[in-house]
């Protein structure tokens, strides 16, 4: 509920191999995804990933402003990742984006762009807004996962979705999908995004200490995790159209 009572847990993984939130090492947090939640946006997604709550909205393709940013043969993809003031235990001061948000916006854009047929709409812009309403570790991967579905929901032609999740090193073990405590007190964190069809990696960052072997198994685990995320994305898209009654008269 608040930052007043944060303290470092003694152990992040117990003697039975269970993590602090009761998960197994290779288990994702529960994920719920809803497509088409904002009426004004061309495409939108609301995602709950563990205790993360994320909104992604896509506007476009649209006319580009200012005009000089226009590209003659393709669309300009712009991403904005931001955290709402109440999203973190300590209030996040509103205002211009901080250095972390600027960097994340850039890597998120680069994770999404390879999946889009950007040459289809020359001289236009596509704006992707990712708003973190509640953060609990892994917001960038949650943001990418939501945004790629929001892009598809906007009807933008794509080669594939982009699925993302993080892996990390906690109490010496490689684990899937870090929660906020593991993120804060673990030994390493590695967010990964892929285009699932060909398993092309579009985001890869790493913080911490990994041996070569650890890195290898972490990457494999991340890709397996992304494939599970892909199934959830697929389901969410199909559900949007299933929810409305399809009767076969």
């Amino acid at each position: 509920m608040s930052y007043f009572f944060r303290k470092e847990p003694e152990k992040l993984i117990d003697e039975n191999g269970k993590r602090i939130d009761g998960r197994d090492l290779y288990e994702l947090r529960p994920i719920k995804m809803k497509v088409g939640v904002l009426k004004n946006a061309n495409g939108s997604v609301y995602l709950e990933w563990g205790e993360n709550k994320v909104l992604a909205a896509v506007y476009g393709p649209k006319e580009i402003h200012p005009k000089h940013l226009s590209l003659p043969t393709k669309t300009r993809l712009r991403c904005k990742y931001s955290m709402s003031p109440f999203s973190t235990p300590e209030r996040k001061k509103p205002g211009p984006p901080d250095r972390r948000s600027i960097e994340l916006s850039k890597v998120i854009r680069e994770a999404l762009e390879p999946a889009i047929f950007i040459e289809k709409y020359p001289k236009t812009a596509i704006d992707v807004f990712i708003e973190i309403l509640q953060s609990a570790g892994g917001t960038r991967t949650a943001g990418i996962t939501a945004a790629s579905v929001a892009l598809a929901d906007a009807g933008i032609p794509m080669k594939d979705l982009v699925s993302a999740c993080s892996v990390g090193k906690v109490d010496g073990k490689i684990v899937l999908d870090l929660n906020s405590l593991e993120d804060m007190y673990g030994e390493g964190d590695m967010p990964v995004a892929i285009m699932p069809r060909k398993k092309k990696i579009t985001l890869l960052q790493l913080d911490g200490n990994f041996t070569r072997e650890e890195f290898k198994s972490a990457l494999k685990l991340a890709i397996d995790g992304c494939m599970k995320i892909y199934e959830i994305q697929r389901e969410a898209i199909l559900n949007r159209y299933k929810e409305q009654k399809i009767d076969l008269i």
Partner: peptide
Amino acid sequence: TNAELVPLASPSFEPGPP
């Protein structure tokens, strides 16, 4: 009290200070 018209809410909202 602070209000943010975040750009995802409307095509007419621009990023930037309130």
